[in-house]
């Protein structure tokens, strides 16, 4: 795909542990087109955050390494660029919103100052002008009384307000791509709705792309155009949201969709579940990992299923059992 803003191909990210190397991300490929919003969904430990942190080169050092694959932003291979350029990309062209704003914001600096710092790293403007811009951004993300709030410390703001500050910080250099890693997981539903709407408004207004990482399929259904489903370090299914939600092909995607309690369910009905649990990362088999969870003695246990396109833009990596079952 030539029109892709971000293209991740065959990404392998490993961590060095006491028991040797573990592959947290195992040949993951997907792309984000300009102006598109893509949801990356999966359960904890599936490698979604590691994928995102690989893109912006924020893996925990020295244990985390990208071993294989390419990550290109607008045709520029981010794995090859020097650290100086990477610092420009990070924040300048790719904004990142982290899950827990309280630990992502510096507790001893006023939020205005923290925003000014970001702005002045990427733009050559005076401190006063940068502060003015910072206050404008606080206003844009819906913080009441932004001039006064700029003088506040993070602990003086509520969780929702802190997440708004994070969004202002990620957007203030008008990046082309925003990576939002579980931006609403720590928030109440009503505040979550506010934050998601804000993100969507900003995407439309600024024409940027969003890579939204979440474990909540409901958020993806409402927010994204494309979905990438990850399981045990791999992409098992990806495609346009309406298509994947209407015709999920992989047994894991089907299971995930079926296990959400829905409002129209009958009271106290037994939910469909996926039996078992994700294997520990050091026990991952080379073959089909969903078969591993289901305890199937599949022939695929040693051979990785192929990634195939089953409908326009709808890709699945499944063995026969996971596809038909």
């Amino acid at each position: 795909m030539s029109d892709a803003l971000l293209e991740v191909r065959d990404l392998v990210t490993s961590f060095q542990t006491d028991n040797g190397w573990v592959r947290a991300v195992d040949k993951v490929s997907f792309s984000v087109a300009a102006g598109q919003s893509v949801g990356l969904v999966g359960e904890s430990g599936c490698g979604k955050t590691v994928t995102a942190m690989s893109i912006v080169d924020l893996l925990p050092k020295p244990s985390g390494h990208i071993l294989e694959g390419s990550i290109s932003l607008n045709g520029e291979d981010l794995r090859q660029v020097p650290p100086k350029r990477m610092r420009q990309v990070r924040g300048g062209e790719i904004g990142v919103i982290f899950q827990e704003p309280m630990s992502a914001l510096n507790p001893v600096h006023r939020i205005g100052k923290q925003l000014v710092e970001v702005i002045r790293l990427h733009k050559k403007i005076s401190g006063r002008k940068a502060l003015k811009e910072a206050i404008e951004w606080l206003d844009k993300v819906g913080i009441p009384d932004p001039a006064a709030r700029a003088m506040a410390y993070p602990h003086q703001l509520s969780g929702g307000m802190r997440q708004r500050v994070m969004i202002a910080m990620a957007l203030c250099c008008e990046p082309r791509l925003v990576i939002a890693d579980e931006p609403t997981t720590a928030l109440d539903v009503t505040v979550q709705a506010q934050i998601l709407d804000l993100l969507e408004d900003m995407r439309k207004e600024l024409g940027m792309s969003v890579l939204l990482i979440t474990h909540d399929l409901g958020v993806i259904a409402e927010q994204c155009e494309e979905v990438v489903v990850m399981y045990a370090g791999r992409v098992v299914e990806r495609g346009p949201v309406p298509e994947v939600f209407a015709n999920p092909a992989h047994a894991y995607t089907k299971g995930l969709l079926a296990s959400i309690p829905r409002l129209e369910n009958e009271r106290k009905s037994i939910l469909t579940t996926i039996p078992g649990q994700v294997a520990a990362i050091q026990d991952f088999v080379p073959g089909c990992r969903f078969c591993q969870r289901m305890g199937r003695r599949s022939t695929m246990i040693n051979n990785r299923p192929t990634f195939a396109e089953i409908a326009d833009g709808h890709w699945v990596e499944a063995c026969r059992e996971c596809y038909e079952g």
Partner: peptide
């Protein structure tokens, strides 16, 4: 009503 309305609906339709 607001609480119900804020729940993300897992059906994109």
């Amino acid at each position: 009503k607001a609480l119900f309305s804020a729940i993300p609906d897992p059906d994109p339709a």
